[in-house]
Design a binder for these strands. Structure first.
Lengths: 154, 154
DNA sequence: CATTAGTCCACTTTGTTGATAGGATAGATT
DNA sequence: AATCTATCCTATCAACAAAGTGGACTAATG
């Protein structure tokens, strides 16, 4: 499971991707619209800024906005920064490899082989899906839902 | 990341799968061979027994052994019992579905769609891989390593 | 210079992880 | 019955993270 921190981070980034042409967005607006505790979100956005995903402007007319276009931000990158490695075992992490202390022979560890498969499938998806991709899927789903509703009405 | 508890549980089960024709195995033996802290392992094996994966015998000649053949135990089942749902979000868990408190509209949540894909790939692997499968992969890898070594020696 | 907006820091509460210690209990052997 | 032997159970502990709260500080704008 992702921590709420990571989930909130993803939701906030998604919101800012949608609002990218509107200039800086207030923490309060994101918190209200996405129903995230405002103070907690504050800390999360600060961290996202430190990690280079966001920029901010202080004072009146200020707020947060994406540091890069939505096409340039993958879910994998966000999850890794906020949550840690995608891998289920340290010994199969691409970005934070660490030998398992207790492991007797890594090359013939069956667990490792299976968990490497899982890691590969996971990163295949998360590292190729950007905020822009997610948005376009949402729009498709919404369109499909409307089409379905129309059909139902006929 | 899996907790050490889950990792140790999987390693212990794997060990007992390998030892399935030798009768009950001592906690101390598993702890030593797999280099797991013995007292911690004790608690883990007890839990695995409560969950129905293991049986035990007390007194001299006692120890732990698999409650079912290795072909009947999937990694997914073990991980779910020890670690919790495989899903990254509660709203995409098959076994422990829960709506996200803050979610405004689940049907058009882009995050959810992507995380559902990840969950599907993960459970595809873990729910179809048994202790026996893992063992046979280990043997294949060991054989391949030997073949490679021979080739290298020629 | 007052107001608005955002940063930064300190703190709390609650729970989990990973582990250790000590003794109770049940089964086998003598 | 006495005695090993091994699991079972209870309690405790330090370290850490999750999920916030409160409040002081600072920077930009009108």
């Amino acid at each position: 499971m992702l921590s709420k921190k990571t989930k909130y981070a993803l939701k906030a980034l998604q919101y800012l991707a949608r609002a990218k042409d509107r200039g800086p967005v207030l923490i309060a607006e994101i918190a209200e619209q996405e129903r995230i505790p405002q103070k907690f979100l504050e800390a999360i956005l600060l961290e996202l800024k430190k990690e280079g995903f966001l920029e901010s402007r202080k004072g009146k007319g200020g707020g947060y906005f994406l540091a890069r276009p939505p096409e340039g931000v993958t879910l994998g990158a966000v999850v890794r920064k906020m949550e840690g490695p995608l891998a289920l075992l340290p010994c199969v992490s691409q970005t934070a490899y660490r030998r398992c202390d207790e492991c007797v022979d890594e090359r013939t560890c069956g667990l490792r082989m299976t968990m490497k498969d899982v890691r590969d499938r996971t990163s295949e998806i998360l590292d190729s899906t950007t905020l822009a991709d997610v948005e376009s899927r949402v729009r498709q789903a919404a369109a499909a839902a409307r089409a379905g509703a129309v059909e139902y009405e006929i």
